[in-house]
Nucleic acid binder design. Sequence first.
DNA 1: AACCTTTTCAACCGCTTTGTC
DNA 2: GGACAAAGCGGTTGAAAAGGT
Length: 309
Amino acid sequence: MDMDMDTSEAGGIKGGSSCNIQNDDELDLRRGPWTVDEDLTLINYIATHGEGRWNSLARSAGLKRTGKSCRLRWLNYLRPDVRRGNITLEEQLLILELHSRWGNRWSKIAQYLPGRTDNEIKNYWRTRVQKHAKQLKCDVNSKQFKDTMRFLWMPRLVERIQASAAASSVSPPISTITAANTPSAAYNHNNFEFGGATQITGSNFTTENSSTAASSESFGSTQLSPISDLTDYYYGGVPVGNKGNPNPDYCQTVDLSYSDSITSLDMQAVEPNNQHHQYWVQSRGGDSADNFWNVENMLFLQQQLSDNM
DNA sequence: AACCTTTTCAACCGCTTTGTC
DNA sequence: GGACAAAGCGGTTGAAAAGGT
């Protein structure tokens, strides 16, 4: 096992144990942040010999690191196809959807976000999503929070993706719409039923071969419709991820265009400077990609939570 | 400017799964 | 089928950066 391997190489189970430190010293194994020289050594070695067999790789390359540490450094940081930087709206949407299906299966989720590592997705979930749950004083795994994500957060993400696509004039053609199946209608104050069977057709998660209904139940870990590998993903007609080139033919497009039926609340949702109604939760780093929460929604959720207690 | 608090994320730990003999 | 090693995974930690006072 890796633990055993580490024990034999690094000399201990607990990193902070004196035994471990002693053996680390004996083996002169390094820990902590990687230096530029170490990075270059690892990159050059893998460029020549390929990756894998991490323990022998570490020794052969002359790195005073465990094989495990080398593997992690390569996969999470040095690999040439690692994408860095802010998680895009599309990626956020995909993470939310896939997490609703698979839970904390970070590596599985990462397979559908090319260039993103499981570690990065995990960190995103913990720092952003769990933060919101904490702000709302509910458990991140609670039905209330999951419903909030599906009925408020995800439709809002779709809107923002659409809005940004429209702003950049590269939005793909969208078929005609009806007011009833716009995401706006789905969480319109008048139509919204928290956790109930509200009309959410505008934000159904679709794949090339499925039309998974976005019921609140589907947000749990059960009743998951199978998702095929190598599938292009669309959420509400918005391509949110792919394992290859998006093919519009695969898209079971759900009408998403805005219409005159958009309510005042909906308009506020895409109007970032409305100080009166909006409480934009700023994230450090300036992405603002997770700023979907407004006072009304938070109060609404809190009301639901108190009603259910 | 200095200090304190909060947030982020790279790296680690330990457990499980997979592969090989 | 058992033993062992390697790889993979998810949870957690802690240093550094950023924000707040």
